[in-house]
Every structure is written in C-alpha cells, then in structure tokens.
C-alpha cells in the first residue's frame, strides 16, 4: 500500500468533474484520488451538485433584445452629450453658491425641505408603495401576469410564481378583510385593489406584514 505523497487536489475537482482539465492533469488527479480518501470524500460532496448544475436549463433572452441594444446605447450617449453644457464650469460657479445659500437659509429657518411622513415602518413601507405595476402583476397575479404564466414553459418558474402569488395574495387579502378596513375584496382583482388603496390602508397592510416578520 502506497502512502500519499502528491498534493491534495480539492480545488481542481470541479474542473475535473466538469471534464475541463487537460489529459495530464486528469491523469494526475485520478492517480491522486485513487490513493487519497480525503480528496475522494471532497469529490463526493460536490459531485451531485456539479451534475445538477449541468442539468440546469439555459436561460434565454429574445434575439430582438440584442438587436435593439446598440441603437438604445447611441440614444443614451446622445442624451449624455446634450446634457453636458449644464456642467460647464461657469454654471457650477454660479449654481453651487446659490444653492448652498438657499439650503443654509432653509436650514436656519428650520423649515423642513423635504416633507417627511412621520413614523410608519419606513423600512417596509416602500415595499408596498414602490411596487411597480410589474411587481404588482407578478406578485398579485393579475391578468397580465396570467398571460405571461401561460406562456412560460419552465415549470420551475411557473411554480415559484404561483406560490408567490398565492402567498402574497393571502397576506394582502387577510389584511384587507380586517373589519377595520371595511373593504370587500374581489378575489380576481388584487391589482385593482392595491392600486386604489389610500395611505391609511397601505399602512394597515404594512402593519400586518410587519407582524408576520416578527412572528
């Protein structure tokens, strides 16, 4: 029985399993694995992950996206060029002192420059109020999203979306159906309901969501 004298090979194992090492390295690693239990065990811990990763479907994006990329880039570059005069030194010399003076003036007067909504769970609030129509569609399962769902062929994506929708809808539904809200909720129109919420109602949902995170 031989004693292991060659270097351990853990950091080469992913490439080895992937088949992306050259013949000489392959031979060396194989020989080492034959004699080293420790590296064999390391290999066993990652072998299934490597093959699972390999089996993952490739993500795709429509080719039309790349076709439109360059024209949009030139639009942005053009816009950038047009904006430039704003930053010429003379403009800065004038604007900076003036703006500073205005800011200091208001600070001294103790006038709040930005009106701030007091209290109200500031970390969670944006979650609700800043949801884009797309987010709302995704989470709440609007008709728009229904179409997207029908089109997706990836069962993983489908299941995850359905799960999110179901859970999200349930949280919001529970919150809305609270007696204090006096709101009746149409099962199929969460998006419409979300969009029509007033500030107090949004806050109410936030409270509910917060309770859940604490639990």
């Amino acid at each position: 029985m031989s004693i292991v004298r060659t270097k351990h090979v853990p950091f080469e194992l992913v490439d080895y399993l992937e088949g992306s090492v050259d013949a000489a390295a392959r031979r060396r690693i194989t020989e080492h694995l034959d004699t080293c239990k420790r590296c064999r065990e390391e290999m066993e811990t990652i072998a299934s992950t490597v093959s699972e990763l390999k089996a993952m479907p490739e993500e795709t994006v429509p080719q039309t996206y790349f076709a439109g990329f360059l024209p949009r880039l030139h639009e942005s570059l053009q816009k950038k060029r047009e904006k430039k005069p704003l930053w010429n030194p003379r403009a800065v010399y004038v604007t900076v002192p003036v703006l500073s003076f205005v800011v200091i003036f208001f600070l001294l007067l103790n006038v709040p420059i930005l009106e701030r909504k007091p209290n109200l769970h500031e970390s969670i609030r944006p979650l609700i109020v800043d949801l884009s129509p797309d987010d709302i569609a995704e989470v709440m399962g609007s008709r728009l999203h229904g179409e997207v769902l029908n089109e997706t062929e990836n069962p993983a994506v489908y299941n995850t979306m359905m799960r999110k929708q179901y859970n999200a809808a349930k949280v919001v539904k529970d919150a809305l159906e609270d007696k204090s809200m006096s709101l009746s909720l149409n099962e199929n129109d969460y998006q419409g309901v979300i969009e029509s919420l007033n500030d107090d109602q949004v806050d109410h949902i936030i409270v509910r969501l917060k309770e859940r995170t604490i639990l």
């Binding site: 979650l127 299941n159 995850t160 799960r163 179901y166 859970n167 349930k170 949280v171 969501l209 859940r212």
Partner: peptide, 20 residues
C-alpha cells in the same frame, strides 16, 4: 414575507410544496 406563509396546514400550499 411570502415564504413565511408556507408553514403547512394550508392545503393549496401543497401545490407549491416541491419548489423546483
């Protein structure tokens, strides 16, 4: 928030049980 919901009991949740 939304995964907190998946704590059992609710039967419709079973549909989503096997997260892919």
């Amino acid at each position: 928030f939304f995964t907190l919901e998946s704590d059992g009991n609710d039967s419709p949740d079973k549909i989503f049980e096997a997260k892919e």
